[in-house]
């Protein structure tokens, strides 16, 4: 028998702490596969913000730095300056990157730092119990938008990739999704492209991944995927906003 697909070496044998059907597992798996395929396990460093992904160092086998909420972008810039040999990626939620960490997430793109920014967008603050995030859809109910998000009071959902793509310093910016196999394959390609850019010194790359959040959305994982396909994508169009 020939192996068609086997688990990436980026994970140890612990059961991950993510909820059943959580997108973190799929995104982190893809990053692990990129690590294996690009042979960078000795150079790869994940810089984690604060959120559901914070404790993911327990399941990983490669280098990880955990920094304050919102600050991975700055830490990645500093690390890359001190050790350009590292392949550094920031791993943040939509709140970590687009709310408290807005400045530290955008500025690496302003500077054109040769790093990779991965953002997992589930349209809520999940770790803290489901509050409204910058990406919460208009009318979406959360624990802090009980009557549905009022965009007149809180603004429209934030499109960070489109904004970062407008900066001369960014080289590759894409938004992808996990809602079915075809899109998962495309997401993997985009993430791999982002890492190849860094390895080849092309410059700043950002990939935002639309991700399910069964526990907070109060939906079965399969229904979350339908919600992404029906609703979330309408607000957050997929595509490559910059770079091949």
């Amino acid at each position: 028998m020939k192996a068609v697909y086997e688990k990436t070496t980026a994970f140890n044998d612990l059961v991950t702490g993510y909820c059943p059907g959580c997108g973190h597992g799929i995104v982190q798996r893809m990053i692990g596969e990129c690590m294996d395929e690009l042979g960078i396990s000795d150079r790869l460093v994940a810089i984690l913000g604060v959120g559901c992904s914070s404790p993911s160092w327990r399941f990983m086998t490669y280098d990880i730095l955990s920094v304050p909420h919102g600050r991975p972008g700055a830490a990645a810039s500093g690390m890359k300056k001190c050790d350009p040999n590292k392949i550094v990626y920031t791993y943040q939620g939509d709140g970590d990157s687009g709310s408290i960490g807005f400045s530290e997430t955008v500025y690496p793109a302003v500077r054109g730092d040769n790093i990779t920014s991965i953002i997992v967008n589930n349209t809520v603050y999940a770790m803290t119990g489901g509050q409204m995030a910058p990406t919460t859809l208009a009318g979406q109910v959360t624990t802090t938008s009980p009557k549905g998000r009022d965009v007149n009071a809180t603004g429209q959902p934030l499109h960070l990739p489109e904004l970062v793509a407008s900066l001369p310093g960014s080289r590759y910016v894409a938004r992808v999704s996990l809602h079915d196999t075809a899109h998962i394959r495309k997401a993997k390609q985009a993430i791999k492209q982002a890492f190849e850019n860094q390895i080849n010194g092309v410059g700043y790359s950002m990939v935002e991944v639309l991700s399910p959040c069964p526990s907070i959305w109060r939906m079965k994982p399969v229904d979350c995927m339908e919600r992404i396909a029906r609703e979330v994508i309408r607000e957050f169009p997929l595509g490559t906003f910059k770079g091949a």
Partner: peptide, 23 residues
């Protein structure tokens, strides 16, 4: 290496990123 950051918050976190490599 020298870098001016966009704020003290960014500056100290850049330092944290560098220090984590043992620099």
């Amino acid at each position: 290496v020298f870098a001016q950051a966009e704020s003290e918050i960014a500056a100290v976190n850049m330092m944290f990123g560098g220090a984590a490599t043992g620099a």
